[in-house]
Design a protein around this nucleic acid. Structure first.
Lengths: 204, 204, 204, 204
DNA sequence: CATGAATGAGCGTTCATTCAT
DNA sequence: TATGAATGAACGCTCATTCAT
């Protein structure tokens, strides 16, 4: 039985990573609903699903770990990109461009993440992962928007609505990429940046 | 074994409607993945799941019927609302307000529809319903946007990106309503209308 | 509820015949195991399986009627052909040629009959139809063989074994025709006639 | 989920054998059509049908395994018996006696095999097992017959027809044994041997 | 750390049949 | 005579999980 405390052995972590990778690929390809332990084990080349149950307490923990992993990776990426932004307008545009860039470079992960968010209802906890993560992500965006309003760069508007709209405009990309894999994401990002700059800025 | 020909009997249609209602409620509440025939039958107060299989050829047909029903209803609602719009700016704002209004009045239906779109992969057809319906919906929006650009009311922008962004900003509402049922949708709609008016209009 | 007594109305008989024809075709094509009421009704163009249940007390009666029908028809055919046979050798050869000829002209019926015999276990009665019919058919053949032995035309042998062998050599034809529909049945019959003439006759 | 690679564990093989035995008994007694997983599991004393699904990929694999098992066993038996035959006449008689002897000693297996052949339509493959196996079995018999014709021991005749007739005369035995379990199979074999010797031999 | 074996519950579907017109 | 509606039981199969090494 694997550790519940703080650290895990090296090989255990390797196995977990291997399983998570297979899980991401499976969900990205078949959708959350079709991602059974059996199919994940098959893709990972495991002899039985038992190995998944062994390294993860259950499906809930597997999905939680997946979300945490992707979020952590994306968080690192975003933190680096957002480090030096001149002002709020720059920060918003940079945010949009950065998330789109991350999605472009991690299609499977993002596809899987979205599929999980939309297909997953934890039967243990009352609230879904969606709610918590959502609040967190939107919180960050709202921070940027509020700062812009305070500095006078942004016009008055409901920061929650604006943040949600920005986020949704990006969230949908993984699904869009399913049916249009050749989409020019850089151009897409520029269009969005321009769109939300006009939607938010105070001056004409 | 009902129907091969053209029409259905009155009682059969009543049963179908009853089952569809229960299906919508079940999916809206539990998500597509948890919406089994058993749970639907239980909610509908049916003696056995056999009745569902009897009135619908299979799960595929049940879901197809659900989508068609909701779409038809929404289509009627939208057509009425969009009938007389002065210009493109008005049309865009009306579109946003109308869809939001429809969602506000048909939360369960929309919740179910979204859940189906995101959790459903038809094993029969290659493409999911999502792809086809999406194209259709976006097509309508793109029509409004292009008309505005041609009349000079809208600035130049990629109509596909803009249409997708508008649509996503509304699509997400059913999910938002899950965690925030008390959201002021009228205000939300006004914020979106203002947001996209600024994002699209040509003049300062 | 249809008659249990002796006669049936004209239209009822027509319906029964229509259903029996569809049943024969269905069984011949898909095998007894796949011949459900639903599939039979579909092939017969009936609106519901209820019509079958209405005209036949149950599956057992449907199958019984099928067997009886085919047997009666084959019986008439055979009686005519076997009418004037010079001697036992002639009778045996004629029997073989006649049954083969009948099979050639009624492939679906025979295919269905065989499929029923081999796939059917009446849950009501203890003995299967096979046993009774078998005895009857073999009885006829044994009669021919015994007569030949008494007249000295046939050598001594176990008439039951010989009759069974003759019958099996013909029974299998419907199945053979499945995989080899172009089989020359006339030639086949001649080979069998020669084979069993040599196997039975007394003189060298 | 047992095995993707090459071999199976000891206990797994034991379970498979146990399940196969129960399957054979069930089919032999009730016929292929009534041999559900539930009935097989009950006979085998398994806690649930899940164990069957666990050890065999599906009903198709279960039936395939059954056929392969019985054929392999019969093949070994026949190979040993047919090892030293003086000539074609001897070979033919030995073939008949051997198959009958095998049937006598393995009634349930043969009953099951026949029931499967006649009641089974694989939905995966276009052709049934019957067709392939049939060709193989008849091929062997035809080999014996052709050799006899070439050596002059056998008269000219269609080897396919003769082989099919021989085979059918034996195939039917399992069914005959159902209604007449006390049949003297040794005597039966002798009658058949004599019958087909006369039918095939060239000299008077 | 890993694994084969086993499990009960649930899935969507199909079955022959009965009820009520 | 015909029919739509309804039904419970059973089907093969897959699910995530647990037991015992």
């Amino acid at each position: 039985m694997p550790v519940k405390g703080e650290s895990r052995s090296v090989t255990a972590n390797a196995r977990r990573a291997q399983i998570l990778t297979a899980t991401i690929e499976t969900i990205a390809e078949l959708g959350y609903g079709q991602a059974s332990f059996a199919r994940i084990a098959e893709r990972a080349g495991l002899s039985s699903t038992r190995l998944i149950s062994y390294h993860f307490a259950g499906k809930d923990e597997l999905i939680s770990a997946l979300i945490a992993d992707v979020y952590a990776d994306m968080g690192r990426f975003m933190a680096e990109r957002m480090a030096d932004c001149a002002d709020a307008r720059d920060a918003l545009a940079t945010y949009i461009r950065s998330v789109v860039a991350y999605i472009a470079a991690h299609r499977a992960q993002m596809q899987a993440l979205m599929s999980v968010f939309l297909g997953y209802r934890s039967e243990s906890g009352a609230s879904s992962y969606d709610a918590d993560s959502e609040r967190e992500v939107l919180g960050h965006l709202q921070g940027i928007l509020r700062a812009g309003q305070e500095s006078g760069a942004f016009r008055p508007f409901d920061t929650f609505v604006m943040a949600a709209t920005v986020q949704r405009s990006i969230d949908g990309l993984p699904f869009l990429l399913r049916t249009a894999p050749d989409l020019d994401l850089e151009a897409y990002a520029e269009e969005l940046a321009e769109l939300f700059d006009r939607a938010t800025r105070s001056a004409p």
